[in-house]
């Protein structure tokens, strides 16, 4: 049976390994006092990138965007990684669901 499993595992391993190690640009956004810094971020269009969200507040926040189809809870004093794109050039608003009145921002894909 191993001769069947081996190639399958190799393919699976390669699949995940490529996904994990492919170089992707990292864009960092910081949450402080329920605000996003920077609140307007320029990101590369037509390319997948990694959004690193650092929450400096003590309280949790949920990064959310309908336009990007993304939602993720980032606990207080922690960070979270969200993969985004490839995006067509344009403006993509996002917000912090737990503090919607202040935590607003947008990604500008160019």
């Amino acid at each position: 049976m191993t001769r069947f499993y081996k190639p399958i595992f190799t393919i699976l391993f390669l699949f995940f390994a490529t996904a994990a190690y492919a170089e992707k640009p990292v864009i960092t956004i910081t949450i402080r006092d329920h605000l996003f810094y920077p609140s307007e971020v320029e990101v590369p269009a037509n390319q997948k990138f990694k959004l690193l969200v650092i929450n400096e507040d003590a309280t949790p926040e949920e990064f959310e965007s309908y336009e990007l189809n993304r939602e993720k809870v980032i606990l207080g004093k922690r960070k979270g990684v969200i993969f985004v794109g490839p995006l067509k050039p344009g403006v993509y608003p996002f917000f912090g669901e737990f503090n919607m009145s202040t935590a607003q921002g947008k990604l500008i894909a160019k």
Binding site: A58, T59, P60, E61, E62, V73, L75, G76, F98
Partner: peptide, 13 residues
């Protein structure tokens, strides 16, 4: 679970 996390923020604050 998400609601509990949401409300835990208010408890801390």
């Amino acid at each position: 679970g998400e609601l509990v996390v949401f409300y835990s923020g208010f408890l801390q604050g």
